[in-house]
């Protein structure tokens, strides 16, 4: 039985969104001070801040829906790996700048489609968060798509590198737009979105940018990640161990 059974579906649905933002923000935070150019350092930090802001709003909302008094920090720092419902894409390591850009691009194209539809959710708070977040994600996509094109259509080396990044990350994209029981239940309630429609929009955005970037779209491969059901690979555990270490070392302390 998956970890999902412990959660009320609505809470789990919001946590999926929250955790994906939080984990990607955590990854981008690792870049600060180490980017290929000073201005790119600032750009990545801005995206990290936007995603972290979205995560905080969503975690707080999930905590309220859950009604057990857990705030954003309790949810971020005191849950186990298995309880994190982020998509597997965002937990993938930063790798080189090409890996980070490819991960960001695949994510941003998805998030723009997702938020555009969530803005009409029957969960008014979720709709409000999505409306705010859509503006940020639209900018993120502009940034990451711009870099996909520069790297894809730059030098032979950059083309080769980013094509490899794309291939490595591709299997993690399948779960983004593949509806499971929870997605279907939330869609039926008017809270969630139609992932088939998200898929169509995501495909179009990805294909357009890859064409401009002179990159080949990888073939779908049978392995499917299920990060959003709490089934993760080898990377998330370490990411959380680092993120949660100080908070957990001082139970009950205020910071």
């Amino acid at each position: 039985m998956s970890a999902l059974s412990e959660h009320e579906p609505h809470v789990a649905y919001v946590l999926r969104l929250a955790d994906s933002n939080l984990v990607l923000a955590q990854r981008l935070g690792e870049w600060v001070g180490h980017a290929p150019a000073l201005e790119e350092d600032l750009a990545l930090a801005n995206i990290a801040l936007d995603l972290l802001g979205q995560a905080r709003l969503l975690l707080t909302h999930a905590g309220v829906l859950e009604g057990k008094g857990r705030d954003e920090d309790a949810l971020a720092f005191l849950r186990e790996e298995r309880e994190f419902l982020n998509v597997a894409l965002v937990e993938q390591p930063n790798g080189d700048f090409g890996d980070t850009i490819a991960r960001q691009f695949l994510h941003d194209a998805w998030q723009v489609e997702l938020y555009g539809r969530l803005a009409a959710s029957r969960d008014a708070q979720l709709a409000a968060i999505a409306t705010k977040a859509l503006r940020e994600s639209t900018y993120h996509l502009r940034f990451s798509a711009g870099w996909m094109v520069r790297l894809g259509d730059g030098t032979d080396e950059s083309h080769r590198r980013v094509e490899e990044s794309l291939g490595r990350l591709w299997p993690c994209t399948l779960e983004l737009c593949e509806a499971d029981d929870l997605d279907r239940a939330m869609l039926a309630l008017g809270i969630g979105v139609d992932l088939a429609a998200v898929r169509a929009g995501w495909d179009r955005r990805v294909n357009d940018t890859l064409t401009e970037a002179t990159l080949t779209r990888p073939a779908d491969r049978p392995w499917r990640w299920f990060g959003k059901r709490g089934v993760h690979g080898e990377h998330l555990g370490r990411l959380l161990a680092e993120m949660q270490s100080l908070h957990r070392a001082h139970p009950g302390a205020q910071w």
């Binding site: 690792e30 930090a45 995560a55 100080l246 910071w255």
Partner: peptide, 19 residues
């Protein structure tokens, strides 16, 4: 300390500050 900031608010402040 960005990756280990003890609360999400401190993490946001620290990223903004280092940025």
């Amino acid at each position: 300390w960005i990756t280990r900031a003890p609360s999400l608010e401190r993490k946001a402040i620290l990223i903004a500050k280092v940025q």
